[in-house]
Design a protein around this nucleic acid. Sequence first.
DNA 1: CTGAAAGCGCTTACAG
DNA 2: CTGAAAGCGCTTACAG
Lengths: 355, 355
Amino acid sequence: MTMAKRLTIREVAAAAGVSTQTVSRVINNHPDVAPETFARVQAVIEKTGYEPNMLARGLTQGRSHVLGVVVYGLDYFGPSRVVAAIERQAAEMGYGISLNLILGTESDGVGQMLSNLRSRQVDGIIWAIPEVGDNRAWMRTHGRDLPVPVMLVGGMAGVACLPCIGIDNAAIGRLATEHLLAGGARHVGIVTGPRTWWEAEQRLQGWRETIAAAGHTVDESLIIEGDWTVDSGEQALYRMIEAHPEIDAVFASNDQMALGAIYGAHKTGRRVPEDLSVVGVDNIAEASHFWPPLTTVHQPLAEIGVMAVQVIDQMIMETPPLRRSQEVQPEVRLLEPELVVRDSSRSVRRSSIVE
Amino acid sequence: MTMAKRLTIREVAAAAGVSTQTVSRVINNHPDVAPETFARVQAVIEKTGYEPNMLARGLTQGRSHVLGVVVYGLDYFGPSRVVAAIERQAAEMGYGISLNLILGTESDGVGQMLSNLRSRQVDGIIWAIPEVGDNRAWMRTHGRDLPVPVMLVGGMAGVACLPCIGIDNAAIGRLATEHLLAGGARHVGIVTGPRTWWEAEQRLQGWRETIAAAGHTVDESLIIEGDWTVDSGEQALYRMIEAHPEIDAVFASNDQMALGAIYGAHKTGRRVPEDLSVVGVDNIAEASHFWPPLTTVHQPLAEIGVMAVQVIDQMIMETPPLRRSQEVQPEVRLLEPELVVRDSSRSVRRSSIVE
DNA sequence: CTGAAAGCGCTTACAG
DNA sequence: CTGAAAGCGCTTACAG
């Protein structure tokens, strides 16, 4: 049985005493088959364990029932959650996933990757790469040449006239900063992600808006750039303290940098949250057990993955493809983040008790 | 240009004034083509941007150049690292990846998944599912029926007569426990993973051996079962303290539970490492900035992913497939873990200074 | 409701 | 070194 030659539709047809055509109708659930015939063919299929060859099916149908997923940083929290959700939803809808990882955030090797995806005749491409540097320009140039529907996830909202789903990153910055101000903070610093990242800039933008809206002046020296790593969060805190000893709150643009900031606070003898409030972003599994437990901003990543698949499926099904012309702005959907309050930040009630 | 019909080999042939056959030779780098002809065809291909249809190629060759990867828990540290490494190595070697996620660890839905994989004519399957409960029996029963090479990753070493690559989990337990004892610990508890997991049992086994080898008696009540989550680590610590107030070291079977144990130590007023040494497993990105920084055991996960692809490629290339008969025990390779010493555990020198 | 024919885009022997 | 023919395993119109 091992390595056995696989059955073909022809053999099933012969065994059932019908044409291959009829077997095809049965396995595709076509309506026009006599119930009795259907049952007979079905019986043979079940007995023999016949499985249609998707390569052959793909060749005739001109589609592979596979979605190409291009991702950066599968090791990280966000991407891995999104990909997991995409896979589950895709499986649910009958798609396979062709996983393609990108190492750097530059557009090197992307041409090769897209070429592979086209070769494999994927039905659509989900592009889960953050907008970094010249990415946007690249997508704008090449995005429309792709012979299949493309869906942008996470970054590049409104870019290149392609549909997109992501998180409102400015809202993340606002949520975190408003919370810190509401807790009584007067000097709120921010540790950003790499400034070349669109997400990082948007979170910073939210911080700016909120600081300004509260009537404070936006001091540029309160902005320190990190690189998403724990260590960069720690170093950022030291620089911040040096420039602004009066600092009493930090918004770190992800949980790892928030952890670094908390660590730095411990090292320099600052109590969190009494001396320094800290808020992160992501709500990683560990966040609830940091010391102190981390206040952070949750992003609905699984929802994004699910929706991405639903939207692209819809695009695939639109035959003939509606002209996704420049005039019609494609849908851009941004989901709202959610604040998760824990002990690393002073809350209104708490601070009044403490003081 | 958008949604343009794709070129076929026939059109390239016509443009180059040769037969499709010759174009096929060129794109497959066959030797027997006149240099001049080769160049002419190549020029047409480059000018037109022709890309061969892998579905058609797969149909004729009987292989898809795709590897099926079945994974549990992509959200987690281990699996995401391994998958990332697999994808990179596979791309390097010309394979695409069909990603298939499993939700639970039971064998539900696995049949369906394998059926899909067969349908898609994958060249081989990399099975990165931990050995849990009846998994092993299931694999033993069905593993050999698969019509393609299968490679086990991470779990089920030596199971089902299939080749396997993983980590020596008993060595992880030994490494951690020896380190704790060397640091002067006299009462070393262990927080295990779920006892249905083979990995968890192996790490426990390493702990047992080491405790016994050091001349201590193995007290079963020092063994507390966790479920890999931070919270379970915290709860486990409380139970351990209750049963054994004299406890002075804990080996947590992953970093998250180690974090939970540290958290619980703080809560109960114990200093780490002075009162309680803690060691974890994984060396997640955050571990270096826990408070205190976590001593942990690193697993060479990327290496595992790379090797898995190399081995399965070799199996695929073996044509005709050597009889992988029951008599020949297939290769099982276990890589060695590595201890990463930080501040959460007393080291020999340190403890002598402290005391 | 069912089947014979043609074709999807390649590659594999087989001639020359 | 090159090409005409057949075929991979399906599905798509088209008859009946």
